[in-house]
Each structure stands twice: as structure tokens, then as C-alpha cells.
């Protein structure tokens, strides 16, 4: 579906204070999840209780923003009730949409809460007109969060062939694997995004010092090594350094984060409805800064400013790490 309206800025909140920060910084929508394994950012101390969600939705609505609730892991066999309850609670709290990936959750929403908007999570990895069409027909899904493997040209072509809205990631952490179809984490450490809402789980992380510096390990597997004093990183599996053939290095992805801010105008031309910022595990300082900058950038794009001017607005956003436009430019592949 190619939309011509104002692009929606969808922003992350891992805590109620981050939700308030995002609303105040100009988010059109905030996405968040419950403090359990029903959402794909199930980290200790993060996310919302049902009461916090209800309060957060009231706060957002009072300020003209929407709240999208992510129930985007896969329900556990023989114990699907927590996922159904999460869906029921989100609907009861007045969520503006539920973001889901599991057919069990989508089916429950479509049959029990037909009045609540349904968005297809990136974890469903729906990238073709046939796949998206299936979810639209079977569950009345209204928007699909696009897998981060499509180029902007492919998104434009896709939008001409589908009847639902599209949402594209513009900023934040970058999964190099197709999300929802990656079991690297459970292979090494026993817990995974699909099963537990966690990738490279913190309880399996260790930083071990030896003569050569620090080894960042996940469940005993060395994911990266740092010389003494060298900035360390969290040992996310696909961002580590490994050996293959006669080479050693970042085999899967360099330690970069996504910044497709320069492509906002192209996204609009491609018919994208909503732009998504990643980072529910990030603090409110990050949320405020990034949302504020993207608010300005999206408004500038809507007013017809060109990519260079938008680049200038977003120039201060780098956190010191390197950035990439990811798959949106074909060269990434």
C-alpha cells in the first residue's frame, strides 16, 4: 500500500520513563511490551507491568500519541495462556495496536479482539507480497514491519503490490540475520529471541581478563577479544569476531548501527507509512535525543527538504560507533 499522508514516527520505550520521554520528544507512536517472555526484548528489569502500560497509554493519549504493544515472541507449546493474556490485557488497556509474529497470537487477536489493530512484527519475517497478503487475509493485519533485508527499491515495488501499510526501521541496533528465523543464541546459550525474547542472554555473558586482554564470552564461546584499554562491546553473537578460511574478523557484521536517516525522503517516495526507531533496551537519554532529532528530520522531509538538509539535522546523532544504511542500499549484501 502506498500512502501519501504524513509519515508516522514509531519510537521505543523499555520503561514508563522512556515512554514519557518519547512522547515529550515528539513520537507519533510508542511501542513497548510486557515484563515477561511475550515480548522480544525480555531483559531483566525492562518493560511494563499491566498497570504501567495502562498508565502509559493514558499519558500517551493525553498528549496525542499512540501506543503499540509488542507481543512478538512465539507462544510456548502447552502453555499459550501467557500470550493470550498479554493480548487480552493490551486490548483492555486500550492499546492502539498489537504487534505480533506468532500465528497463535495473530489468530487469537483476530478472533477475540477484531476491533484492535494488528501489526505484523518484523519477527514474522514477511518480505513478499504473497506472505504479507496471507497475513492480511487470514488475520486482517493492517501493517507489516518490514524485515531489514529489503532495499528501498524493493520496498517501493512491494508497496505497489500489497494492501497493508509498511513500517521500516530507520535507526538503532541492526540484526544482520533475518529476524524471527535465527537460533544462534539458543545454539550457544540455550535461550533465543523466538523462545524467550532474549538474544545473547546476559546471564551467560562473561568478560574474562587474561594476558592478551579481555575475552567477551557467551556461554563459554569467545565472541570477541579486546586489547587492554580497548573499548569493549556486548557479546551479541552476530556482531563478534571469528575465524573462517584464513581470515579473522567481523564475519557477519561490523560493529555498526543502522542510521537510514538520509533515506527518509526515499522511504516516503517508496510509500512507507511509518518509520521505526530501535532501542527498547536503551535509556531515556538516548530516546529523547534520537526521537527529537528524527522528529525534526521527518518534519523537514514532509516539508519537502532534501536529503542533505536532513543529514545535517541528524549529524549530531552518532554515538561514536560507525553507522550503516544496511540493506536499504543494495551494496550491503
Amino acid at each position: 500500500m502506498t500512502t501519501s499522508g504524513r509519515m508516522e514516527l514509531v519510537c521505543p520505550a523499555g520503561t514508563p520513563s522512556a515512554l514519557r520521554a518519547a512522547v515529550q520528544a515528539g513520537a507519533d507512536s510508542i511501542y513497548c511490551g510486557f515484563r515477561d517472555e511475550t515480548n522480544a526484548r525480555n531483559f531483566p528489569g525492562l518493560n511494563f507491568s499491566p498497570q504501567e502500560l495502562a498508565e502509559g497509554i493514558r499519558f500517551a493519549h493525553a498528549h496525542g500519541s499512540k501506543v503499540l504493544v509488542a507481543i512478538n515472541t512465539f507462544a510456548r507449546a502447552g502453555d499459550t495462556d501467557p500470550w493470550r493474556h498479554a493480548a487480552d490485557t493490551a486490548a483492555a488497556c486500550g492499546a492502539d495496536a498489537v504487534i505480533a509474529a506468532d500465528i497463535a497470537v495473530l489468530d487469537h487477536m483476530a478472533t477475540q479482539h477484531p476491533g484492535t489493530r494488528l501489526h505484523l512484527s518484523v519477527q514474522a519475517a514477511a518480505a513478499t507480497p504473497e506472505s504479507i497478503g496471507f497475513y492480511a487475509d487470514a488475520f486482517n493485519v493492517r501493517r507489516v514491519v518490514l524485515p531489514r533485508v529489503l532495499s528501498v527499491q524493493e520496498i517501493a515495488a512491494l508497496n505497489r503490490l500489497i494492501k497493508v501499510e509498511t513500517e521500516a526501521f530507520v535507526f538503532g541496533g541492526l540484526c544482520v540475520m533475518i529476524e524471527g528465523r535465527c537460533y544462534l543464541s539458543s545454539y550457544a546459550a540455550g535461550r533465543s529471541p523466538n523462545l524467550n525474547g532474549v538474544c545473547s542472554p546476559p546471564e551467560m555473558v562473561s568478560y574474562d581478563e587474561d594476558r592478551e586482554g579481555t575475552a567477551a564470552r557467551l556461554a563459554g564461546f569467545t565472541i570477541d577479544r579486546y586489547a587492554p584499554g580497548e573499548p569493549a562491546g556486548y557479546p551479541t553473537l552476530c556482531k563478534g569476531r571469528f575465524k573462517a578460511g584464513d581470515k579473522a574478523g567481523y564475519l557477519f557484521e561490523d560493529p555498526v548501527s543502522l542510521n537510514a536517516g538520509s533515506m527518509i525522503v526515499a522511504f516516503k517516495a517508496a510509500g512507507v507509512t511509518a518509520l521505526k526507531i530501535e532501542g527498547r533496551q536503551r535509556g531515556k537519554g538516548y530516546v529523547t535525543e534520537v526521537v527529537r532529532a528524527f522528529r525534526k528530520a521527518v518534519d523537514a522531509a514532509e516539508q519537502g527538504h532534501d536529503a542533505t538538509e536532513i543529514d545535517n539535522i541528524l549529524a549530531g546523532l552518532s554515538e561514536g560507533g560507525r553507522q550503516t544504511t544496511g540493506a536499504y542500499r543494495k551494496i550491503w549484501r
Partner: peptide
């Protein structure tokens, strides 16, 4: 991949390990 589902729906098929079947509700749906 779900891409194949609309074209095959109604006739017998196998789902491979790349398709996310994590629970009985999804299995029954398929």
C-alpha cells in the same frame, strides 16, 4: 516460508524447520 502458503493452501504440504511452528495453535492452524 509463508510465501508458499497461499499457493498451496488446501492441498497437502510439509512445513520445514524454517517455518515458525512453536505451539499447537499454530500447528492446528496450518
Amino acid at each position: 516460508d509463508i510465501t508458499a502458503l497461499p499457493a498451496r493452501s488446501g492441498r497437502p504440504f510439509v512445513t520445514g524447520p524454517f517455518l515458525n511452528v512453536y505451539n499447537e495453535a499454530t500447528a492446528r492452524f496450518l
